[in-house]
Simulated scan of single mutants.
Amino acid sequence: MSLIFKLDILLFIITAIFTGYNLFFVLAALFRQRKKEINHVDTQNFAVIFAAYKEDRVIKESVESFLKQNYPQDKYTIVVVSDHMEEATNLALSQMPITLFVVDFKDSMKHKSISYALDHLDGFDRAIIMDADNVTDTDFLTRINEATQTVKVLQAHRTQKNKNTSVAIWDGISEEINNTIFRKGRVNIGLSSALIGSGMVFDFEWLKKHMHECKTFAEDKELEAILARDNVFVDYSDDIYVYDEKTARQDILIRQRSRWFHAQILAFSLIIKDFNPRKLNPSYIDKIIQWIPFPRTVRFLLIFLMILFWSVVAFPVAIKWYILLFVKIVTYFLAIPRKMYTRDFWSSIIQLPSMMIALLRSYVESICRVKKKDMRFNNTPHHITKENNHG
């Protein structure tokens, strides 16, 4: 029995450390960061890259939306890399005032499309990476231009553009929790923001130099590792939005999250493999801790299992787990922006257990992907929604 108690204490300490670590960044995110005053604002030249793999349903709407920017037209170029899209889609895109690259990769990967575009582009100050379903406000480039005057890399605030199902609502909530913990909280204390795959702004020459180092479907995590290794700060703008379509169906969510969990495992293995004590810096250390493959869904499950076990076997032992569960719930409630506490949110609470089970399933599938060495990029199917107008 003493072995069980020792194991209980060990598991509690590990889980409490992760919970406390997240709570620290949530509290840090509650404080507003002072914006740096800039005396002179240069009008930078932007390459806005949409890597579109089988994205016929959404790419035209996204491009048309972005063409409405109030930024000088001669200072930005929309670039679409069309991979395995229909001829009709490519024809429609070719008639728009954009740069279109049509590629046909045998093993399609987002990093291949981005690298192809960068290899065929020159003369830009910044590269912005967008997903095919992303739309923005009309002042997006103007504000990005101001925000990137003194930083090399910036992550914009990606947020949901659809709330058509309870799955989409919880997908959006999950992303906002991540924005609070891994982006706003980090930047507020001087650590690099996490990247998120789109709404990413890079110094053009830096990205052109390093993009070819990416070899997997987890290109955003690979870029994060390179940035951390080279001690390049990644800023975050909480008030510059990129509207992203959230997953509306649970089966698609499971497939998507299995890829994301796999990406986290890959990122952890890559940063450990390339570990260099001489290049240690706070953001590098933070990435190692952040990417330990112990996701919050598994931590929640562990807490519930320990509560159930000790409530039956020895209730006093369970008390600390009840307290930890309370702290964890409070942490995530604080991480959710107040504006998201809507009627839709409260009505979808009943779906939370089902969502947790789906996330656990996706974690199991990610382990299977790792064992099978499945490195395929599976794009997320989209469902066109017209419920929100931005800009």
Rank of each mutant, 00 (worst) to 15 (best):
T385R: 13
F204K: 04
L334E: 01
S237P: 05
L7F: 09
Y76H: 10
M96E: 10
R255G: 09
E87G: 14
I189G: 04
I169P: 00
I114V: 06
S62N: 03
I357K: 10
V103Y: 13
F275D: 08
T216E: 03
I254C: 06
S269C: 13
R229M: 13
V242A: 05
K339D: 05
L7K: 13
V313D: 08
A92N: 12
W291A: 11
I38L: 10
V79F: 04
P97H: 04
M200C: 12
K208Y: 02
K279M: 06
Q351C: 15
K246R: 13
H120F: 00
S362H: 00
V242R: 09
N378Y: 10
Y53M: 01
L227E: 01
H111E: 09
F46T: 06
L352C: 09
D125N: 09
I177G: 08
D274N: 15
E224W: 09
S65A: 09
A29C: 05
L359D: 06
Q155R: 00
L100P: 03
F182P: 05
S366E: 03
F5T: 00
L308T: 12
Q73K: 15
A92W: 10
L359P: 01
K320Y: 04
P72R: 06
Y71K: 10
F50W: 03
V234A: 04
F182Q: 12
A318V: 02
R57M: 08
L3V: 09
F46Y: 11
F18V: 05
I307V: 07
K163G: 11
K208N: 05
A117I: 00
Q149S: 07
D74V: 06
K279H: 07
S237Q: 07
Y332L: 07
R259V: 04
F333L: 07
T180G: 12
E245D: 15
V151G: 12
V370D: 06
A228E: 03
S362I: 01
F105M: 08
A335H: 03
K273S: 08
F24T: 01
K372N: 15
L100E: 01
S366M: 07
L227G: 05
M211P: 03
G199D: 01
V234D: 04
P72A: 10
Y241R: 10
Q250A: 07
E87F: 12
S2A: 15
V187Q: 09
K60W: 05
V232G: 08
V313M: 14
M130F: 08
Q69F: 02
L7D: 05
K279F: 01
M375F: 15
F275V: 08
F50V: 01
L308V: 11
I78N: 04
D131K: 08
W310N: 11
I38R: 13
V48G: 06
G199K: 01
E213M: 12
I319E: 00
G172S: 00
H84D: 11
T385C: 14
I252F: 10
D104Y: 11
V298M: 13
L359M: 13
Y332H: 08
H84P: 06
A16T: 00
M130D: 08
Q290F: 14
F182N: 14
D171K: 11
T19M: 12
F12S: 06
D104L: 04
D274W: 04
L266D: 10
D220E: 11
F140W: 05
T19V: 09
V364Y: 12
K112I: 03
S113A: 14
S362K: 03
K279A: 13
R296Q: 08
I14E: 02
V63N: 10
H84Y: 11
K328V: 07
I288Y: 03
L10P: 04
L301E: 05
R299H: 00
P381R: 00
